[in-house]
């Protein structure tokens, strides 16, 4: 009979094995395959795939979309979080669920809603057409779809931090004569910065990576309205495996960069 100590050790290694195996299956092996497929014929094929006009158009469209959506939803998320965490009012729980709605609605449905509103036969379609504004199959549609799917992240991350912080430090600042904006910059923001930063990073990652909603409204015109994720799908469907994997690696790198930036910021401003 093995002693209980041995059993314990066996269980321990078994659990570690299961965890590592699971991570390998879901995370490590796919990521390695991606990098392998992109580089297994050397660096030059990768460089050529990356150096096409269409690919660069997709990267810049993705960056522009993120640059527009991240600040807007950061400000919205901060305001929403402040209203929800610092006030008690009727419909507070309802408002929280509404902000969470983009989590529960399928992105494809979100895209369809936009088409029903702004498409050629949509509610605002004729009006926009007469004004000469294109929303669907153009940048505004992509931005609207991205705004929709990234709406909850900042508010979701900041609300619990604001609640945990409590309002007494803000009250103390008020008794010391601080104006509202001084309280925000000097007291509230430093206290919620990690939650806020994490929310911004999640928003950014989703803004760059969103496929479903953007695919519906963008029209996927390669070189004009295809963002990186859509570009990956299109070239893959055209049997340009090298191009698809190269673009996917770049998309993955963008995500890695945001994580590294977060790490650096955390180390540099970490006070205690």
């Amino acid at each position: 009979m093995p002693s209980s100590n041995q059993l314990n050790r066996r269980t321990k290694w078994l659990l570690i094995g299961v965890a590592v195996g699971y991570l390998a299956l879901i995370l490590f092996i796919p990521a390695t395959t991606l990098v392998y497929e992109a580089f297994h014929r050397g660096f030059m094929p990768f460089w050529e795939a990356v150096n096409t006009r269409f690919f660069q158009a997709a990267v810049s469209l993705t960056l522009i979309t993120a640059l527009i959506c991240v600040p807007i939803n950061t400000i919205f998320g901060l305001c929403a979080a402040w209203v929800i965490a610092r006030n008690q009012f009727r419909g507070r729980a309802l408002l929280m669920s509404i902000i969470d709605l983009p989590f529960s609605v399928s992105p494809v449905v979100a895209g369809l809603m936009l088409i029903l509103l702004y498409g050629r036969i949509g509610w605002f379609g004729p009006l926009l057409e007469s004004a000469g504004i294109r929303v669907i199959f153009a940048l505004p549609g992509i931005v609207l779809a991205t705004l929709f799917v990234t709406l909850p992240f900042v508010a979701r991350e900041v609300i619990p931090v604001l609640e945990e912080m409590g309002s007494d430090q803000e009250e103390a600042a008020r008794t010391l004569g601080a104006k509202d904006w001084q309280i925000f910059w000097r007291v509230t923001l430093p206290n919620i910065r990690w939650g806020l930063l994490y929310g911004v990073l999640l928003t950014n990652a989703r803004a760059m990576g969103e496929f479903g909603a953007v695919a519906v409204v963008s029209g996927s015109i390669i070189g004009r309205t295809s963002t990186l994720p859509i570009f990956v799908e299109q070239v893959y469907k055209n049997y340009q495996t090298q191009g698809a994997f190269s673009a996917a690696v770049v998309l993955g790198l963008l995500a890695a960069v945001t994580l590294v930036v977060k790490d650096i910021l955390e180390k540099r401003t970490h006070t205690i």
Binding site: D168, Q169, E171, A172, R174, T175, G177, K179, N191, T271
Partner: peptide, 19 residues
């Protein structure tokens, strides 16, 4: 307004600025 009264207020749970 509390800001213009020039009072000093000490809270039960200190309310010091943690950062």
């Amino acid at each position: 307004d509390v800001r213009d009264r020039n009072i000093g207020f000490v809270f039960q749970h200190y309310a010091l600025f943690k950062h």
